[in-house]
């Protein structure tokens, strides 16, 4: 339900994969003597001296530090993009005329109210709601944890009719999109759920 950097991850993995594969295959090609016909210096029995001599060039330490900085920036940005984001909507501006004042409502506040409304339904033990979009075109993302024996279709109908109706009434606009993900609440094992009747 939260946003992740799925596209960036896949692009990054493809780029890294291609680079690593190209390097590895190049090393193997030289090692197995496939490149000797192209350049006699690249025959299988030659040593890695020419590669190592690149490191002996002047300014190579400085270039290494700069390359390290660039790699560090890419690595840190990629790592920080892995934290899933909720991306709530910006506070809704609800007033009809801004000359008489502004009315702003936090999306988190409405989302919490919708979650509390959902939790009052039968078979729902926990609900998390994210509100995105604008006041005119709100989008609701709902994660519901249902009881393992709950009537799933009834929960869906209740969400669509009652909870979404209440949310739409509160916002004064129809919901442009609602996404509902139904998970099952973790309950204790059967032994612990047993009730003794006296």
């Amino acid at each position: 339900m939260r946003r992740t950097a799925a596209a960036a991850n896949r692009t990054g993995l493809i780029i890294l994969g291609l680079i690593a594969m190209a390097l590895g295959l190049a090393v193997l090609a030289i090692g197995f003597g496939l490149t000797a016909s192209i350049d006699p210096a690249l025959e299988a029995g030659a040593d890695l001296g020419p590669v190592a001599s690149v490191l002996a060039l002047p300014y190579s330490a400085l270039i290494a530090v700069i390359a390290a900085l660039i790699l560090a920036v890419i690595g840190l940005r990629w790592l920080s993009a892995q934290v899933p984001r909720k991306d709530f909507a910006k506070p809704f501006r609800m007033q009809a005329d801004s000359r008489t004042g502004l009315t702003t409502v936090n999306a988190e506040v409405i989302a919490e109210a919708v979650a509390a409304d959902l939790e009052s339904a039968d078979g729902v033990s926990d609900a998390q709601v994210i509100l995105r979009g604008t006041a005119r075109r709100p989008e609701l993302l709902i994660h519901v944890a249902a009881d393992e024996r709950a009537d799933i279709d009834a929960i869906i109908a209740d969400t669509a009719q009652r909870a979404a109706g209440n949310a739409s009434l509160a916002l004064g606009a129809p919901l442009s999109a609602v996404a509902l993900e139904i998970a099952i609440a973790r309950t204790r094992s059967r032994r612990q759920r047993t009730v003794n009747i006296q």
Binding site: N9, L13, I14, L18, M21, L23, L48, G49
Partner: peptide, 29 residues
């Protein structure tokens, strides 16, 4: 590293590992 040869076991092993890791990353992507 400068004293190693291209057909030494270590260099070949590094090449194989790099190529395999690259293939895995490419498939995952």
């Amino acid at each position: 590293a400068g004293g190693l040869h291209w057909n030494s076991a270590l260099v070949i092993a590094v090449g194989v590992v790099l190529a395999l890791l690259g293939l895995v990353a490419l498939i995952l992507g």
